[in-house]
Design a protein around this nucleic acid. Sequence first.
DNA 1: ACGAGCGCCTGTCGGC
DNA 2: TGCCGACAGGCGCTCG
Length: 272
Amino acid sequence: MPELPEVESFRRFLAQGRDESPSILGKTIQGGDLLWERTLAAPSPEEFLERVRGQSVEELGRRGKHLLIHLSRDTLVLHFRMSGEVIVEAQTEPLGKHYRLLLNFSDGDRLAFNNPRKFGRVWLTPDPDALLADLGPEPLDEDFSPQAFYAILQNHHRQMKYLLLDQKTIAGLGNIYTDEILHLSKIHPRTKSDALSFEQAKLLWENIRHVLRTGIKNQGTSIDWMYRGGNYQDLLKVYKHTGEPCPRCGTPIERITVAQRGTHYCPTCQPL
DNA sequence: ACGAGCGCCTGTCGGC
DNA sequence: TGCCGACAGGCGCTCG
């Protein structure tokens, strides 16, 4: 599930708290529970539990779809892949069915990594920049310019859907937002990247930022049971709207497969 | 360089 | 009601 807007929402929940859940800033980790071993990418479970103990939460960050929990000495890097969220609650609460990793704080609260499909991964590392070095530019950064984006498009001869989903090209976009961005930009998902003009690239650049910012404002997208709390699903124009009229021209939205992913687009607004 | 196929997992939904 | 296949927000790997 979580793409950039959902992960950014998680970051803000952890930093600011929400509803009954408090902020985790300043809390000290007393211990951890690894409930699904493969969740921990590095280091070993023994080293992880030993090293994480006694560290406190200093800052919360995000890079692409990765949630960064900066501790006293190390950084916890969380990636959810296809499902999940983080939950802050008292340690006396019953364990959720899909909890994979728990961090128990000294004040009695805990942070749970909830990840139904078990694809998610967690790293504990002193050097998160090295871990995330292969990621492409952060789309909402100030130094991500239309010129830089156009240069990326010109440097490849790839179908646009592939390129936008590739985290090495640009970080944070997933299947939902990519479909919405391409529809808004009137670009067919199979359009080759180097066929776009600078004007098209600039429009696409604007729409990437607009869609992501609107997603964040709405605390992300909640399509099914995996994550509740977002509202962007009400603003989707093509994703999961197969057969419904395009809000711009009325043509039924079509679903095809591109990059092994369900891809929704308007055959009239987004000609190849 | 590019893209197809597959594995990893749990769950929902629709058709029969 | 139950069974079965298709599908789901991601990504690393192999192979052509």
